[in-house]
Protein backbone atom coordinates (compact mmCIF):
# COMPACT_ATOMS: atom_id res chain seq x y z
CA UNK A 1 0.00 0.00 0.00
CA UNK A 2 2.74 2.41 1.01
CA UNK A 3 4.68 1.50 -2.11
CA UNK A 4 1.61 2.15 -4.26
CA UNK A 5 1.15 5.55 -2.63
CA UNK A 6 4.78 6.42 -3.20
CA UNK A 7 4.52 5.46 -6.87
CA UNK A 8 1.34 7.51 -7.20
CA UNK A 9 2.96 10.50 -5.50
CA UNK A 10 6.01 10.18 -7.76
CA UNK A 11 3.78 10.03 -10.86
CA UNK A 12 1.88 13.12 -9.75
CA UNK A 13 5.18 14.94 -9.16
CA UNK A 14 6.40 14.01 -12.64
CA UNK A 15 3.17 15.08 -14.30
CA UNK A 16 3.19 18.37 -12.36
CA UNK A 17 6.73 19.05 -13.57
CA UNK A 18 5.61 18.40 -17.15
CA UNK A 19 2.52 20.55 -16.68
CA UNK A 20 4.77 23.39 -15.48
CA UNK A 21 6.76 23.12 -18.69
CA UNK A 22 3.64 22.90 -20.87
CA UNK A 23 2.44 26.40 -20.13
CA UNK A 24 5.71 28.10 -19.28
CA UNK A 25 6.82 28.94 -22.82
CA UNK A 26 3.41 30.46 -23.62
CA UNK A 27 3.66 32.82 -20.68
CA UNK A 28 7.28 33.55 -21.46
CA UNK A 29 6.48 34.38 -25.10
CA UNK A 30 3.55 36.62 -24.15
CA UNK A 31 5.88 38.74 -22.04
CA UNK A 32 7.98 39.66 -25.06
CA UNK A 33 6.06 42.77 -25.96
CA UNK A 34 4.66 43.95 -29.26
CA UNK A 35 7.89 45.35 -30.67
CA UNK A 36 9.35 41.89 -31.10
CA UNK A 37 8.64 38.82 -33.21
CA UNK A 38 9.14 35.64 -31.22
CA UNK A 39 11.38 32.94 -32.66
CA UNK A 40 9.25 29.76 -32.86
CA UNK A 41 12.27 27.68 -31.87
CA UNK A 42 12.95 27.94 -28.15
CA UNK A 43 14.87 26.28 -25.34
CA UNK A 44 13.26 24.44 -22.47
CA UNK A 45 14.66 22.15 -19.77
CA UNK A 46 13.95 20.84 -16.33
CA UNK A 47 16.80 21.84 -14.06
CA UNK A 48 17.90 20.64 -10.67
CA UNK A 49 19.27 23.23 -8.25
CA UNK A 50 22.93 23.94 -9.21
CA UNK A 51 22.48 22.43 -12.69
CA UNK A 52 23.45 24.62 -15.59
CA UNK A 53 21.89 24.23 -19.01
CA UNK A 54 23.20 25.84 -22.15
CA UNK A 55 22.11 26.29 -25.71
CA UNK A 56 23.60 27.95 -28.75
CA UNK A 57 22.13 30.73 -30.83
CA UNK A 58 23.17 32.55 -33.97
CA UNK A 59 22.40 36.26 -34.00
CA UNK A 60 22.50 38.10 -37.30
CA UNK A 61 24.26 41.43 -37.60
CA UNK A 62 22.25 44.60 -37.41
CA UNK A 63 19.44 43.02 -35.39
CA UNK A 64 18.22 43.57 -31.86
CA UNK A 65 17.33 40.37 -30.03
CA UNK A 66 15.36 40.05 -26.84
CA UNK A 67 16.08 37.13 -24.52
CA UNK A 68 13.42 36.28 -21.96
CA UNK A 69 14.04 33.56 -19.38
CA UNK A 70 11.23 32.17 -17.22
CA UNK A 71 11.22 29.56 -14.50
CA UNK A 72 8.17 27.62 -13.37
CA UNK A 73 8.97 28.31 -9.70
CA UNK A 74 8.89 32.04 -10.45
CA UNK A 75 12.37 32.71 -9.15
CA UNK A 76 14.96 34.70 -11.06
CA UNK A 77 17.40 32.53 -13.00
CA UNK A 78 21.07 33.23 -13.49
CA UNK A 79 21.64 33.97 -17.19
CA UNK A 80 25.02 34.23 -18.89
CA UNK A 81 25.86 34.86 -22.54
CA UNK A 82 29.24 33.75 -23.91
CA UNK A 83 30.85 34.31 -27.31
CA UNK A 84 32.23 31.55 -29.53
CA UNK A 85 35.53 31.62 -27.65
CA UNK A 86 33.83 31.19 -24.28
CA UNK A 87 34.35 34.79 -23.21
CA UNK A 88 31.61 36.10 -20.96
CA UNK A 89 29.65 38.87 -22.69
CA UNK A 90 26.76 39.30 -20.29
CA UNK A 91 25.89 38.11 -16.81
CA UNK A 92 22.51 39.07 -15.41
CA UNK A 93 23.90 38.94 -11.88
CA UNK A 94 25.47 42.29 -12.71
CA UNK A 95 22.10 43.68 -13.78
CA UNK A 96 19.75 42.98 -10.90
CA UNK A 97 19.11 39.44 -12.20
CA UNK A 98 17.13 40.81 -15.12
CA UNK A 99 15.11 38.05 -16.77
CA UNK A 100 14.55 40.07 -19.94
CA UNK A 101 17.42 41.75 -21.75
CA UNK A 102 18.09 43.02 -25.26
CA UNK A 103 21.21 42.44 -27.35
CA UNK A 104 22.22 44.33 -30.46
CA UNK A 105 24.59 42.35 -32.70
CA UNK A 106 27.00 44.59 -34.62
CA UNK A 107 28.31 41.53 -36.41
CA UNK A 108 26.80 38.08 -36.92
CA UNK A 109 27.65 36.08 -33.81
CA UNK A 110 27.43 32.59 -32.48
CA UNK A 111 26.68 32.76 -28.79
CA UNK A 112 26.13 30.28 -26.03
CA UNK A 113 23.49 31.03 -23.42
CA UNK A 114 23.78 29.36 -20.02
CA UNK A 115 21.01 29.24 -17.43
CA UNK A 116 20.89 28.18 -13.78
CA UNK A 117 18.05 28.23 -11.31
CA UNK A 118 18.16 30.89 -8.61
CA UNK A 119 20.84 30.00 -6.06
CA UNK A 120 18.20 29.60 -3.37
CA UNK A 121 16.03 27.22 -5.37
CA UNK A 122 15.68 23.95 -3.55
CA UNK A 123 13.70 21.87 -6.01
CA UNK A 124 13.74 20.91 -9.66
CA UNK A 125 12.02 23.43 -11.89
CA UNK A 126 11.24 23.94 -15.54
CA UNK A 127 13.00 26.76 -17.37
CA UNK A 128 12.14 28.32 -20.73
CA UNK A 129 14.30 30.70 -22.74
CA UNK A 130 12.64 32.51 -25.60
CA UNK A 131 14.35 34.78 -28.09
CA UNK A 132 12.71 37.33 -30.32
CA UNK A 133 13.90 39.85 -32.85
CA UNK A 134 12.87 43.46 -33.12
CA UNK A 135 10.37 44.33 -35.84
Amino acid sequence: MTKALLIAAFSVAISCAHAQCDVLSDDCAKAMGKQFIVDPNFFQAELNPKDEASFRAVWLKGNTYRLNVCSADGSACAVMVYDEEGTLLYDNQQFEQAQTWDFFAESTMQVSIAIRLHEQSKAKSCVSAITAFKK
Binding site: D83, E84, W101, F103, E106, T108, M109, Q110
Partner: peptide, 9 residues
Amino acid sequence: HITYLRSQS
Protein backbone atom coordinates in the same frame (compact mmCIF):
# COMPACT_ATOMS: atom_id res chain seq x y z
CA HIS B 1 18.34 47.07 -20.64
CA ILE B 2 20.42 46.44 -23.73
CA THR B 3 23.91 45.14 -24.44
CA TYR B 4 25.70 46.13 -27.63
CA LEU B 5 27.74 43.17 -28.84
CA ARG B 6 30.65 44.80 -30.65
CA SER B 7 32.86 41.82 -31.46
CA GLN B 8 33.52 41.43 -35.16
CA SER B 9 33.29 38.26 -37.18
